[in-house]
Structures are given as C-alpha cells and as structure tokens.
Amino acid sequence: MAFVWNTNVVSAWGATNASSVTYLTPVVGVVFGVIFLGEHMTWSEPIGAVLVVLGIVVSQRRLKRLTSR
C-alpha cells in the first residue's frame, strides 16, 4: 500500500517533492505517539520537527518565494 501511495505521489508531485514525504514520517510518528499512545514529548522533539520542516522548505527553495512577497 505504501508503494502504491509513493508511486502516486511521485507521479503527481515529482520525485523531489515526493522525497520530502519520507522526511515527515518521523514527525508524524511522534505526533501519533503522543496523541494515541499517551507518550510524553521531550523538548528536543518539537525543535527537531521544526528543523525537518525548515529543511524541506529550504531544499525545495520555497523560502525565497515566501520572503520575496
């Protein structure tokens, strides 16, 4: 099922954008762990999530578009 989903994402968004989905998997895993399993979050996890999202934004060169408006 994951292969089919990834294939659809690659064909719709392109390979570069589709690779960004794999970087979000740990972030989603932590969020689901907190929500559904009652796990406790440490201070480093939200900071790591922000760094992952910023890395995706920078790697796709969307930061220039956001600041040039």
Rank of each mutant, 00 (worst) to 15 (best):
F3T: 13
F3Q: 11
F3S: 14
W5R: 12
W5I: 10
W5V: 12
T7F: 07
T7K: 11
T7C: 04
T7E: 08
T7D: 03
N8A: 13
N8Q: 13
N8V: 06
V9T: 05
V10G: 00
S11Q: 13
S11L: 15
A12S: 10
A12R: 09
A12H: 05
W13E: 05
A15T: 11
A15W: 07
T16I: 12
T16F: 04
N17R: 11
N17V: 02
A18Y: 00
S19N: 11
S19M: 06
S19Y: 06
S19Q: 07
S20H: 02
V21F: 04
V21T: 04
V21R: 03
V21S: 05
T22C: 05
Y23M: 06
P26K: 02
V28T: 10
V28C: 13
V28H: 12
V30G: 02
V30M: 07
V31D: 03
V31L: 14
V31Y: 02
V31P: 02
F32V: 09
F32K: 13
F32E: 13
G33P: 00
G33S: 06
V34F: 04
F36V: 10
F36W: 10
F36E: 14
L37D: 07
L37Q: 09
E39H: 15
E39W: 14
M41A: 14
M41V: 15
M41E: 13
M41N: 08
T42N: 11
T42D: 15
W43N: 08
W43D: 12
S44F: 12
E45K: 05
E45A: 12
P46V: 09
I47M: 15
I47L: 15
I47T: 15
G48C: 14
G48F: 15
A49F: 02
V50N: 05
L51A: 15
L51Y: 12
V52I: 10
V52W: 00
L54Y: 05
L54E: 11
L54C: 09
L54R: 07
G55F: 00
I56V: 06
I56K: 00
V57C: 04
V57K: 03
V57R: 02
V58M: 11
S59E: 05
Q60V: 06
Q60L: 04
Q60I: 01
R61L: 08
R62D: 06
R62I: 05
L63V: 04
K64H: 08
K64I: 07
R65I: 12
R65T: 09
L66A: 15
L66P: 06
L66W: 07
T67D: 07
T67V: 15
R69F: 06
R69M: 13
R69G: 09
